[in-house]
Design a protein around this nucleic acid. Structure first.
Lengths: 358, 358
DNA sequence: GGCCAGCGTCGAAGCGCTTCGACACCGCCG
DNA sequence: CGGCGGTGTCGAAGCGCTTCGACGCTGGCC
């Protein structure tokens, strides 16, 4: 055969010469001297292939640098091996946690041989419907779920498995996972109560978050108030602005009204730094005069000064488990409807025994 | 015909009854009474279809709730309509900016009818190769590019268009975009110099970032030093730790050594709050005694107290433009190799004229 | 020694879509 | 009044893969 590559059957025996993304399963089969389907079965393991044949095929795959075409695979197998991660578009909220979470999702998904499609909520329900109906993804992970979330009813009849991070008002028929924020609120209060504090306050998320009926904010508040009640101590729950100026105003007012306040639970990453910076300027040392417990990422708590006693939001753990749940649903396994992660309080330098009563 | 749906040709005239993700283009064609290919052309607009036919087809599509199957489309058209967004796995670095950026990318991509696959760097070059070779994505967006990035040479011969956020040491043959950090450094210094400051310092990224040879950190430093030189003022460039304690130590030491320091350029979101909080405790009011310019997101600058004069990193703009560049490359248009966005300094309350010399 | 049961492999039929060439039909010009 | 160039639609051939039924072969058993 002359060296003309444009004959009817070029026979392409020069792997390095052709574009690497044009190697098909047929090339591999030919190279290994087996049928096309045999290569497929080697790859999927859905039928037993003798070790000899398998090795021959695997060698050819490596030699040719074969990667299965995702589209073709999805079409034939009806599985895209992709899951959707739906993030809220809103900014300014717990961004580092979000990121940590997203990373955990991607990493875990890869362990299950899946990729992650990033979807923002701004397309709304229509976007979800599109993603699902087009078979772009096999399953859906929904973050930042609100109490009455527009997307939730849709999800119910979407015919694609999904897992929610956070709990909507009605979670029946859904799979949800989150930190147990009610318990988290309780844990914070119990810690403070145990240290002898009798009057505390919760500085929560910005008011807008409560107005939006975001579950975790309400649940934490409920937990704080319930535990305070149980322990017979006084607790005030307040939304908390994010800017340093807002925090200062809020604290000034709060301490003027309740001078014997000695404990603070802060659930607002963007404000906690300002809280720590402001308290001393109002004549309250942390932790000598006022103890502060934060619900925030560990990283944050470690870097603050003083280092914060905190209940971390286990973003990585939630991400991992959420993906695992979704994967189980993909293979049709039944999974629990609700998964609540137990909060764990880490004691650091921002809390101590309440000052002696006066 | 009796009401038995299990005949050989059920004729499926009951759209609400069948699973929504099983409507195919054939169903639409049948329902509209046209050929399958006509439906395709209506959807793609690649051939002229009469208004009458088009409307009939579009009506059927709406009625049946048809969504094209992504896998089949990708297979036949050799375009997945998905781009990869490769994020660094490292945490703790400029996380909010990253997020803002990612959001802009997703939103912009959607405007071009593309979706975004989230890829973390932890799979390394092999991951990139897999994504590209499997035709899962049409193009690649690479973030947080380092000076000598392992993934860059790979990208060069990957046969898929890509756009880098940030500049590697050698950017020939690639498409890169970023804020002009050199110029940003200059702009900060020029502002301070114009206010009469004669001795300033740059508190940069954490030392680890410099060690990693991250371009933007080095470029900013170079810009600061060059402009200082040009204006005949003294500038010290220091890496800056992220924790409040580290910042305090650094500032204490710095001010002890250079008591006549009156200007600070801070390029470290995680430290800037601590800087503002610490300076007053060291007897320096901001801006009366020390002026502070930050390179950080606007949102951040607005919330600080005092509000920060800053050069924002235009994450949204970078994201938008990066996607646009990639889209142009996808349709084979030629694009500039390097795009440098002009920095803009916003004057707020943290800078003022240098105190009278003594 | 002949038969049956696996085991391992193969061939072919789609999966749902795009796209190319073909081809009716229409009005117009010569 | 016949031929001609558009215009709008259709049919069919894949895209690369999975998967199902078929089938040859080897070995154990009666």
């Amino acid at each position: 055969m002359p060296a003309r590559p444009d004959g009817p059957t070029p026979a392409g025996d020069d792997p390095a010469a052709k574009p690497p993304d044009r190697v098909t399963i047929a090339d591999v089969a030919r190279h290994a001297g087996v049928a096309l389907s045999t290569v497929s079965y080697v790859l999927s393991g859905k039928r037993v292939i003798s070790a000899t044949t398998r090795n021959r095929v695997l060698t050819s795959i490596r030699l040719l640098g074969y990667h299965p075409n995702a589209g073709a695979r999805a079409l034939a197998s009806r599985r895209a091996n992709v899951i959707a991660l739906v993030l809220p578009l809103r900014t300014g909220m717990q961004v580092p946690v979000l990121m940590q979470f997203a990373m955990a999702v991607v990493t875990t998904a890869r362990q299950f041989d899946h990729d992650v499609l990033l979807v923002t909520a701004d397309e709304g329900p229509a976007g979800l419907r599109r993603i699902a109906a087009s078979a772009l993804v096999d399953g859906i992970l929904l973050m930042d779920v609100e109490m009455r979330d527009l997307r939730v009813p849709l999800l119910r009849d979407l015919a694609r498995p999904s897992v929610l991070i956070g709990f909507p008002a009605d979670s029946t028929g859904l799979t949800c996972i989150d930190l147990d924020f009610h318990r988290a609120g309780e844990v914070c209060v119990e810690h403070l109560a145990g240290l002898g504090h009798r009057r505390i306050a919760l500085l929560g998320a910005p008011a807008a978050v409560y107005d939006r009926d975001t579950g975790f904010a309400h649940r934490t508040r409920a937990g704080v108030l319930a535990a305070a009640d149980r322990h017979g101590i006084t607790a005030t729950a307040l939304p908390c602005p994010e800017g340093a100026a807002g925090v200062r105003a809020l604290l000034t007012d709060l301490l003027a009204r309740q001078p014997d306040l000695t404990g603070l639970v802060v659930q607002n990453e963007a404000a906690v730094g300002a809280v720590l910076a402001t308290l001393p300027t109002l004549g309250r040392r942390v932790p000598r005069d006022v103890s502060v417990v934060a619900i925030c990422p560990d990283q944050f708590a470690e870097q603050a000064s003083p280092r914060l006693t905190s209940v971390p939001v286990p973003a990585e753990e939630v991400g991992r488990q959420a993906v695992s749940l979704l994967m189980r649903k993909l293979v049709d396994a039944s999974v629990p409807e609700a998964t609540m992660l137990d909060p764990h309080l880490t004691v650091r330098d921002s809390t101590t025994a309440a000052p002696a009563r006066y």
